[in-house]
Design a protein around this nucleic acid. Structure first.
Lengths: 239, 239
DNA sequence: ATCTTCAATATATCAGCAATATATAACCAC
DNA sequence: GTGGTTATATATTGCTGATATATTGAAGAT
């Protein structure tokens, strides 16, 4: 039904560096590893929306038993990445224009607020971390690889979530980040010219981090909102 | 280690009406039913923070096999209601003053925004539903039972979440609602005099729903923020 | 007092069976 | 022959009980 050999080839060329800095703990259990692996494959559309995920196939492919596979699939269900239909099958969830609107609307609002909190709550040692991120962002000139763009973007967002100092908000925003990342991948698959534009978007983040550094909450919030929404409008053009 | 007989007695006297209007689908699987049952017991502090939850005990008590119990516990872990320590034990999570601050801070901000959306997006048939809720709220005079207060409160919030017309936001807010509900129960357990004051808080909602009905987004947002924060300050007094 | 060993106890995983939804084929009425 | 209905086969997840493995805390040796 779908070629695993081809998938493995793709995985190797992509090398998955986008996700290598997973904050998730030790990945100690098989179930956890299986979850992260499947989730990343879904986000990057290696497993496109609508794909049928058979427990038996995944067991063979991932070389684990049924329990880890089942627990991974269930967790993906709660995340909204798969839909489990009892005794019918488990499918990668579809995404439509409404999801695009809803996810980015929520994420823009919540994340911009979190950025305001970050500007208000930044401590000295975090300021140094921010400066380092700013330097890295400024050094990125010329065309970048997709995974580098997204890895850097993710690091900046995670930094903001952390500095906002609200662990529940962190989880909420990280989840919305993953949701919007998949939408972005789906859009890029259909329209590869999207990628270069994302580079420009990265430079917004310099301004945002600088605003956070000088404690300018209003400006930081404004830029964060614009940043998320610019992703949304880029995606909307091609969907 | 902990008395199940006593728990069953308490359950009967409470009769659990707070949660009888669960929006969760048919509760078709054993795992789903087990999850909801455990979650409600944790929220209402029938299973207090720190309680050790043994798979084997829960299997006997709930009269289900290992899989439903495990799946329920895992889902509770993702919700933040239990902490699973591999091969050590599963515990109902503790809550401290930081959780109180973080949960209510996030919920107040996100929910007040959702209330703004509700005011902007209310349709005619929903306006009628709102009017009916307002009537019910106005009819509640005199001392009320705890579960009636919370059931009504929950209906109002769910109504707002629904009218905001963003399914991701709905899930996020429903989760925060459950988190703050447990904090409230923990506080009430230590300080039962909290209950009567909650009644007054209910009447804020009449003003909020009326603001939503006339499309006054600013006022609706303001009241929603004050409503959630008033719960927070009542709880903070006793913790 | 400190380190080591070991038994107890808990979850993590596995393999097999049960239940059910779906598709397919057989059948019947017309 | 054709349309519709029912029986049956198949594929898939749901669930169970047994086994594997890791963690912990205490007993015992040093």
């Amino acid at each position: 039904m779908f070629g695993y050999a081809e998938m493995d080839r793709k995985r190797n060329t992509l090398n998955m560096s986008v996700f290598e800095a997973e904050y998730e703990a030790a990945e100690s259990t098989l179930a956890e590893r299986t979850y992260i692996r499947l989730r990343d494959d879904i986000i990057t559309t290696l497993l496109p929306p609508g794909t049928l995920l058979r427990e038996a196939e995944l067991m063979k492919r991932m070389e684990v038993g049924r329990t880890p596979v089942r627990e991974a699939l269930q967790r993906l269900q709660y995340d909204g990445f798969v839909v489990v239909s009892a005794r019918r099958g488990t499918f990668v969830s579809k995404i439509d224009i409404n999801d695009l609107t809803a996810v980015y609307e929520a994420r823009a609002r919540i994340e911009s607020w979190a950025t305001r909190l970050a500007a208000e709550r930044l401590r000295e040692f975090e300021r140094q971390e921010a400066r380092q991120l700013i330097d890295e962002l400024k050094q990125t000139t010329g065309p970048m690889a997709l995974e580098d763009i997204l890895a850097l973007d993710r690091r900046v967002h995670r930094f903001i979530y952390k500095v906002a100092k609200n662990s529940f908000l962190f989880d909420t925003l990280d989840h919305y980040h993953n949701l919007s990342l998949r939408i972005l991948y789906v859009a890029m698959k259909r329209f590869p010219t999207l990628v270069p534009r994302l580079e420009d978007v990265l430079h917004d983040q310099v301004l945002m981090l600088e605003a956070v550094c000088r404690g300018d909450a209003d400006e930081a919030e404004r830029i964060a909102m614009a940043h998320v929404m610019s992703f949304e409008s880029e995606v909307r053009k091609v969907i």
